[in-house]
């Protein structure tokens, strides 16, 4: 029997997300077969993981791993749905607060950080990113199961639809598609970037023609996320199919991220 070793909650989380080196995972497998308490701790770690996902507290990499490795399971998605309800209850003054619940209620800053995106025209927002986006009248049109796991950085400014684009989780599967329902209006983009120390440029590519949206964009940081923000002029959003490219200014012109962009009906 292998020696029982103390295992931290974070190690269990990384195991659940399949982010541990093989040797360490093998050690945990062996310990799981012998150690009764590890069964319960693992279940607890899974619940905490889902709670943190529902509260928007996972890093981009963790959110991606959760989606890839765990949310294919309908039971996990059901558990996440419950976790999201718990997260809303925790922040809902008509629920948890009335019962004196929650020893560490999130600060206003933490609540702001947990939002995905919203416009200044949004009324008091319900919790949960997709819900929030819908309430704000914003259409967010890339892979939703990624979006609502990862907080967008800040609340954008008034009067303009804002789209949060997260670092792609699908390099092997081709770009995700951002759909903008109608041409003729400018939109604001908040785009997660890998390196807050670099400058970035955004392009729209239509066929072989590449047009600059904005250049020399300096990333801002919010908690674990770095992002750039740019407004896409209405004139660039002509109906039809385009590509949106994120390029690091000193990256040799190679796009760091690419999204398909559909303006208007397909």
């Amino acid at each position: 029997m292998p020696a029982m070793t103390e295992i931290s909650d974070d190690v269990l989380r990384q195991w659940l997300l399949q982010r541990l080196p093989d040797a360490e995972a093998a050690r945990l497998e062996a310990q799981l077969m012998q150690d009764d308490s590890l069964l319960d701790r693992l279940r607890d770690a899974e619940t905490d993981l889902l709670d943190d996902a529902a509260r928007g507290r996972l890093s981009t990499a963790e959110a991606q791993a959760l989606r890839e490795h765990r949310l294919a399971d309908p039971a996990q998605r059901e558990r996440l749905r419950a976790a999201r309800a718990f997260a809303r209850l925790r922040e809902d003054p008509s629920g948890a607060a009335d019962e004196g619940i929650g020893p560490e209620r999130p600060s206003p800053a933490a609540r702001q950080a947990s939002t995905l995106c919203e416009s200044a025209t949004a009324r008091r927002r319900p919790r949960g990113a997709l819900v929030l986006a819908a309430a704000a009248g914003i259409i967010v049109a890339i892979a939703a199961s990624v979006l609502w796991l990862v907080p967008a950085p800040v609340a954008p400014n008034a009067g303009i639809a804002t789209y949060a684009l997260l670092a792609s989780t699908s390099r092997g599967n081709g770009p995700a598609t951002l759909r903008i329902p109608a041409a003729g209006s400018a939109v604001r983009l908040q785009v997660e970037v890998a390196d807050s120390a670099r400058r970035y440029q955004l392009f729209i590519e239509t066929g072989a023609r590449r047009q600059s949206v904005a250049a020399d964009l300096q990333p801002r940081e919010s908690r674990a996320y770095a992002y750039i923000e740019a407004t896409v002029a209405a004139g660039l959003l002509t109906p039809g199919r385009h590509r949106l490219l994120l390029v690091a200014s000193n990256g040799g012109g190679e796009p760091e991220q690419v999204w398909d962009l559909q303006v208007g009906e397909r």
């Binding site: 809303r88 209850l89 939703a144 599967n173």
Partner: peptide
């Protein structure tokens, strides 16, 4: 097929389900 190219979620339905889940949680608690 590429899962990122699946149809967009119905935001209205998502919101409705979130409301139902919160209400359900209140009842269950």
């Amino acid at each position: 097929a590429d899962p990122t190219l699946q149809p967009d979620p119905d935001a209205g339905a998502e919101q409705e389900e979130a409301e139902r889940a919160l209400h359900g949680l209140h009842v269950c608690l």
